[in-house]
Computed example of a mutant assay.
Amino acid sequence: MGLRASGKLKTKKGVYEVSMPLVEFKEDDHFIVFAPSLDLSGYGKSAQEAKESYLEALDEFMRYTANKGSLDKALTELGWQLKSKKSIKTYIPPNHSKLIDQNPTYHEIIDNKEYKVSRENLELAY
């Protein structure tokens, strides 16, 4: 399965619509869900627990950056581009090859792990 890093994050009045690829793999006895475009992960004893753990990490990241007004800064530091259209901001993640080159964890997953990619569509309100 080819990897896609074309997810987008849109904001509109405190609502964040998130759609991005998640890389799922197993390490030892744990399942891991990793979002390379945010450098966030979650883990658990099952795939479902790992997704729930990831969603908690994502929620905390979004809540923290929303409260501090630092979402733009955090995402641009991760290589995202910001495009504004009227009152809606769209954040575009770095391309796949850039993510692999700049993120040693992601590079190792691609080279050494069996993995699958899924896409989750979420709406988070803050």
Results as ranks from 00 to 15, higher is better:
Gly2Asn: 15
Gly2Thr: 14
Arg4Trp: 01
Arg4Tyr: 01
Lys8Gln: 06
Leu9Met: 00
Lys12Asp: 11
Lys12Leu: 14
Lys13Thr: 08
Lys13Pro: 12
Gly14Arg: 06
Val15Thr: 12
Val15Leu: 13
Tyr16Ser: 14
Tyr16Val: 14
Val18His: 15
Met20Ser: 12
Met20His: 13
Pro21Gly: 14
Pro21Val: 09
Pro21Leu: 11
Leu22Tyr: 02
Val23Met: 14
Glu24His: 06
Lys26Ser: 11
Lys26Glu: 13
Lys26Gly: 09
Lys26Val: 10
Asp29Glu: 10
Phe34Met: 06
Pro36Lys: 00
Ser37Arg: 03
Ser37Glu: 06
Leu38Pro: 01
Asp39Thr: 06
Ser41Asp: 03
Gly42Lys: 10
Tyr43His: 06
Tyr43Asn: 08
Gly44Ala: 06
Ser46Glu: 05
Ala47Trp: 15
Gln48Thr: 09
Gln48Met: 12
Glu49His: 09
Lys51Met: 14
Glu52Trp: 10
Tyr54Cys: 03
Leu58Tyr: 11
Glu60Trp: 11
Glu60Phe: 14
Met62Gln: 08
Tyr64Gln: 15
Asn67Tyr: 12
Asn67Ile: 08
Gly69Leu: 13
Ser70Phe: 07
Lys73Thr: 11
Lys73Asp: 08
Ala74Cys: 04
Leu75Tyr: 05
Leu78Lys: 15
Leu78Phe: 13
Trp80Glu: 09
Ser84Ile: 15
Lys85Asp: 04
Lys86Val: 02
Tyr91Ala: 12
Tyr91Trp: 11
Tyr91His: 13
Ile92Trp: 09
Pro94Cys: 07
Pro94Lys: 10
Pro94Thr: 03
Asn95Tyr: 10
Lys98Glu: 12
Asp101Gln: 10
Asp101Pro: 04
Gln102Val: 07
Gln102Cys: 12
Gln102Ala: 13
Pro104Gly: 05
Pro104Trp: 02
Glu108Ser: 04
Asp111Gly: 03
Asp111Glu: 05
Asp111Phe: 01
Asn112Glu: 08
Asn112Arg: 07
Lys113Ala: 00
Lys113Asp: 02
Val117Gln: 04
Glu120Gly: 02
Asn121Asp: 01
Glu123Asp: 02
Tyr126Met: 03
Tyr126Glu: 02
